[in-house]
Design a protein around this nucleic acid. Structure first.
Lengths: 331, 331
DNA sequence: TTGAAAGCGCTAACAA
DNA sequence: TTGTTAGCGCTTTCAA
């Protein structure tokens, strides 16, 4: 049997209420008593049972984190930001991978709710009606991180994907490129749809038309970048620049170009998205849109703590600043 | 107020014990009763409280995962393996980053124990006496993943680091290299120490001596790989091959060499370690030691489930097979 | 400053 | 097949 608060109380000749008070740092305890209790806690090796505490207090100091894939370099950076802030506020994290599968996402939310998490940080792709419904009926606050809810009903932390993409493509256009292709991941994620909007707006601003064959959709992998480039280079008129929806795909694009004997940026310029560590781990180094992943995670978690404490929050949807960093994959 | 098992019992005209039975899939319930209960659960939107269940049953179906840094491409892959298997066995995961800081590691273990996890998967650097003590006195099983306890007292899942390093260096020597440098990360981790042992053994086998200036220690980053190369290339006699303790550092090494105008593998051959996705995301692609990260995580979690179920385990320390994969950074 | 006692929502004997 | 009941270990009034 484990040592309980009751054992400590008996050994210290006080009531369990008093032990509870010293464990929880309640000031209404005479210093001498506190000392005595602390000593017997030490002596017995008492370890408070957080489950019992959770049942009695209705707080678990645990938050759920739903993430598409923790092994993705992009999401793991977000997760780090979340965990660091969670830690700072004494929360633990229950982490689960969803693979962006809707059924799994809904199941995960419910499973975390059963575990009585005090809040949830949610990362995903497309937010459907079903999601919004879940979020709305949740007994605890939910914050979206790097995930956009088009209806803006759910608190969230993002950057302005449309504008960021617009600026990236504009840079390419300003560099004198006649044609800019767009290589993206799963079309279903709202963030990627917004990037596409920005791409189109930049072209329209430059009075260029959107060409279907300059638009390539694959998955989010390095390999799909290589494949995309093969398609693009087989075109009669190959593009002189490529805007890519993620750094990992962009590395594939760069290598795909180089494998064909062409040069980046002389023959083709490339701009990525995210500014993961990968952007600097390639030659030429990758020009890319800076998305502050760690900060998005950290801010989302911080925002969640406010909701959990029932503090007033002035703005539900926070938009963090982005920027374009020019390295050597552009002229 | 939330819906409890008691509300369901009342509404369905049965006892709470019966409700508990249908929720837990106990077969001793008449089908008609089960149906009735299920319906009122649905109607009331009842959600079982896992905290209360945990307190009553002394099982939380939650395992703790201590990880140095989830944003590391190496560890996040391990974490994915852990989560997938955990999920398969209906466990949730409490994930925390330790940054390989001993105090934090110990604190984390205790915090997870307070939360009454059913078991712990531990990843870290060096295992000290203090760690072993914690592991030994833990009320729940602990399994090490990609983490070696020199005393072999704690269950663990690893590859044979010494032998793997030996083979990698031997490959380089067999390719005719006169001198092989070794670039490694923090010297404190036992795994890296073992890689060093393998490196030395391979040199000794080839009747070569270990030269201090061919041994570079940095942190685990890409940048430290670049720095390491600078040091190496400034030597009077530069090595003709470099064995690197991780893929990320190895990318830095390759680019450092290329930035100096030298060629990999013609001027210098490079072999990495881990076979993370990075190994294929560089030109030339990286020859490396394959460490099955996902599998190590998965097997560690599987092993933990056996301990949690009090099954007999024939061998506490499992050593997974490794291999060397030759790509284009070697001749 | 301290203690007594009533839950928190569930599981698990035990009885019927 | 179903119900009764006693906890699980803690927090939190309420009284003293």
């Amino acid at each position: 049997m484990n040592i309980t608060i009751y054992d400590v109380a008996r050994e210290a000749n006080v009531s369990m209420a008093t032990v509870s008070r010293v464990v929880n740092g309640n000031p209404n305890v005479k210093p001498a008593t506190r000392k005595k209790v602390l000593e017997t806690i030490e002596r017995l090796g008492y370890r408070p049972n957080a489950v019992a505490r959770g049942l009695a207090s209705k707080k678990t100091t645990t938050v759920g984190v739903i993430i598409p894939d923790i092994s993705s370099i992009f999401f793991s950076e977000l997760a780090r930001g979340i965990d660091d802030i969670a830690n700072m506020y004494k929360y633990n994290i229950i982490l689960s991978n969803s693979d962006q599968n809707i059924d799994k996402e809904i199941k995960l939310i419910n499973s975390m709710l059963e575990k009585q998490v005090d809040g949830i940080v949610y990362m995903g792709g497309k937010i459907t009606e079903e999601h919004i419904n879940q979020f709305k009926t949740s007994p605890v606050p939910i914050v979206l991180a790097a995930t956009v809810d088009a209806s803006e009903k759910t608190p969230s932390v993002n950057i302005d994907y449309e504008q960021a993409a617009f600026e990236a493509v504009q840079l390419l256009l300003d560099n004198g490129n006649e044609s800019v292709a767009f290589v993206t991941g799963l079309e279903e994620t709202t963030a990627n749809a917004l990037k596409f909007e920005g791409y189109k707006r930049a072209l329209k601003d430059a009075e260029k038309s959107v060409q279907d064959d300059y638009l390539i959709r694959g998955d989010l992998s390095y390999q799909s970048g290589i494949k995309a480039v093969e398609t693009l280079l087989d075109l009669n008129e190959r593009p002189s620049a490529i805007f890519v929806a993620s750094d990992e795909i962009a590395l594939g694009v760069i290598h795909g170009i180089q494998d064909r004997g062409l040069s980046v940026p002389n023959d083709i310029e490339v701009v990525g998205f995210d500014n993961t560590r990968l952007a600097q781990m390639v030659r030429p180094t990758l020009s890319t849109v800076v998305q502050p992943m760690y900060d998005i995670g950290a801010v989302a978690m911080r925002l969640l703590t406010k909701y959990m404490n029932k503090e007033e929050v002035s703005d539900n949807t926070v938009v963090l600043p982005h920027q374009i960093i020019e390295r050597n994959s552009t002229k």
